[in-house]
Amino acid sequence: MTTETQVIDEGGHDHEHAHSPHLQHHFDTLDQQFNAGKLGMWLFLATEILLFGGLFVAYAIYRNLHPEIFEYGHHFLDPKLGGINTAVLILSSFTMAAAVRFAQEGKQGMLKLCLVLTLCGACGFLGIKYIEYSHKMVHGIFPGKYYNPDEHILEEELLGAHGHGAVAEHGRDHASSSGEETHGEGAHEESTQSAEASAQAAPAEGEFVIEKSQIVEAPEGPEGMVGIVHEKPELPKRPEKAHVFFGIYYLMTGLHGIHVLIGMCAIGWVFFRSTRGEFGPDYFTPVDLVGLYWHLVDLIWIYLFPLLYLIH
């Protein structure tokens, strides 16, 4: 392994590649062809950024004008699953970058391995996404006008996903309407499991019994909740436009998911070509360009994760 970084002199290889079978008739050199492909891909990525840009505009505007719906809505997203998905995508981005490197070196076996690993990462991402989506839809959290959540969902989410500490910090945000169900000091990670578990169980039959002494009183008085008993601290009030958050959530992650699918098709296509040994030091443009696309999918997620899951 050498460590020097260096820029290859452009056009320095003209004579070597003049008759390469990979050179299309309307280009003069492989370098010209490679750089043209890259420039084209970057322009395409710019269009993708602006396509998602529209959604980020919608996000920015509603986050600014109605922060309460984001504060409310993010309780329903699981930062642990989101975090795992971020790591999965970052790893698959790494294997894709490695695939490009192996293609440049002409190491066919490792190239194929890396492409398969990248595909596995993409499948893993979509699998986790599927769990997240179905977990919400089971409780009637659909986008837009189909938003019709169960009455109990909020307390489960709050008890589970955020645990005691997080809820307490929110002041008005904590608690349970069921006397049997209490919540614990659980660490962030543990409590996530309880979220999933309690999601399956009927709300009245909570499985996690914890000492009542740990229940923290809301520092502020009840806000807009009806029928609050002392042991059942109040829930955050559902803001009027709560469904807009889920509309934005589903649109952003959905469009991103579609891009993951398209990326998987592209990686599959490159993998198919790599099984025929088409790529080598002279010609790896398709691997490189699909790689760029895949990294963009990663980039978008890098922003979506904190913006949707990690709202304080």
């Binding site: 919608a58 509603y62 659909f142 986008p143 837009g144 006008k145 189909y146 009027e240 436009k241 469904h243 807009v244 509309g247 934005i248 589903y250 649109l251």
Partner: peptide, 11 residues
């Protein structure tokens, strides 16, 4: 879906 970004009826 009536996501409520453009349509005032949905916020």
């Amino acid at each position: 879906l009536g996501v409520g970004i453009f349509d005032p009826t949905y916020g």
